[in-house]
Nucleic acid binder design. Structure first.
Lengths: 143, 143
DNA sequence: CAGACCGCTTGCGTTTTGCAAGCGGTTGCA
DNA sequence: TGCAACCGCTTGCAAAACGCAAGCGGTCTG
């Protein structure tokens, strides 16, 4: 299952062929900000992704080098997904999307306060805070 | 045709319900960086969006307040699409996606040199250059 | 040994996409 | 005045992706 010819060589278009859908960035969001690393954890987000779609997205993310998959040493049946440097550097993109949504989409006001505070800190902190979070993710995910 | 209940109130998820698909951000890219404002111009990008999809995306963008539509005064049959403040503030998101793609997706090296130079300037310049471009877009699109 | 849990897989109906053709109206030129 | 080129879409249809519910073989827990 090799990848098809890209529709263009614009870096934006090429990037969107990797994560330009509804679910992929939400999976990365949950891994980055909620510390989720197992299949069933990822399934239990508010958005209720269905299991076949989740399985497909995880496979695609692994295939594109945005995640790695390993067996949990304490649980032979459990898979552990880890971020890679390639996906960790997507953090600024995700944070900016969150900032834009907070500013422009009124529904986001209904978010719970704890989450909002967490997100706010990341947005207001700017690049230095992003870098700090990214280095923590590196410590937890890259071996 | 009111919008459905969102799947969650996370600002990232809400944002992705607006532009989390393959085509929407490419339309905005062409308007921001290639100065396109007419239907048929937007159809002629390298990615070859088909006309029914383009019509759908433009309608959705107008519906969400990311574009406005007006009649070209010189051409009764022509529609002119304009960016809004809401969409202009998506520029940092789009630039960051481009930066990520330039760094991580090897295919993007095949892009033509002129485009790459233009994109590179935006990425290396950082927020001050983004602001400059955004203010030019405001001058051209907001009345 | 029973029951809960693990990461998926399967089947199936619905929605979205992609492609090609075309439509009614407008404009520019001979 | 006639006609071709162009305008923003719309339509029909096949293929692909999505969303839901159920279930599967294996593993760990009490």
């Amino acid at each position: 299952m090799t990848q098809n010819e890209p529709r263009s060589y614009c870096p934006i278009s090429l990037s969107l062929e990797i994560f330009g859908d509804s679910w992929t960035l939400l999976v990365l969001r949950d891994m980055m900000f909620a510390g989720k690393r197992h299949f069933r954890e990822l399934q239990q987000s508010d958005e209720h992704i269905s299991s076949n779609i989740l399985a497909d997205r995880l496979a695609r993310l692994v295939e594109h080098g945005l995640l790695t998959k390993a067996v949990d040493p304490t649980h032979k049946q459990k898979a552990i997904y880890s971020l890679t440097e390639k996906s960790i550097t997507l953090l600024p993109v995700i944070v900016q999307i969150g900032a834009w949504g907070s500013r422009w989409v009124p529904e986001s006001k209904k978010q719970d306060k704890a989450t909002r505070k967490h997100v706010r800190a990341l947005q207001d902190g700017g690049p230095p805070v992003w870098e700090h979070v990214m280095s923590e993710l590196r410590a937890q995910h890259l071996k």
